[in-house]
């Protein structure tokens, strides 16, 4: 849906993930969509260079979030939110409804 605006579908997936979960990391994105991790790393770097996302290293994981200082953040989020509404339920269920509540370490599944 936003592919035409952003130039590729990976950016759209990243923006939906950040919109829904608030944060994410390349391997997490890759596993969710079953795609190569470098595809996401490359696009996240592009978004970071543009000031749209920021990252910080937590242990060995580089965690990405929207950049709260990006001057068009409110407008971008509104666009992403609108596009997300139009996403088929099947797709929302498959990719954007992961468990986000905590799970105690060592707890059996």
């Amino acid at each position: 849906m936003l592919e035409g605006v952003f130039g590729n579908i990976t950016i759209e997936k990243i923006l939906f993930m950040l919109y829904v979960y608030g944060e994410g990391y390349p391997l997490g994105f890759a596993k969710t969509f079953g795609e190569p991790v470098n595809r996401f790393q490359q696009q996240l770097r592009r978004l970071e260079n543009a000031g749209i996302v920021i990252s910080r290293l937590i242990g060995k994981v580089r965690l990405y979030t929207f950049n709260p200082r990006y001057p068009f953040l409110e407008e971008l989020k509104a666009l992403v939110a609108k596009a997300y509404e139009f996403l088929p339920d099947k797709e929302k269920k498959a990719y954007y409804t992961k468990r986000t509540r905590p799970r105690r370490a060592g707890k059996p599944l």
Partner: peptide, 12 residues
């Protein structure tokens, strides 16, 4: 060289 625009918050 950081990405434009030069802004403070959402104000140019």
């Amino acid at each position: 060289f950081v990405a434009p625009p030069a802004a403070i918050g959402d104000e140019p």
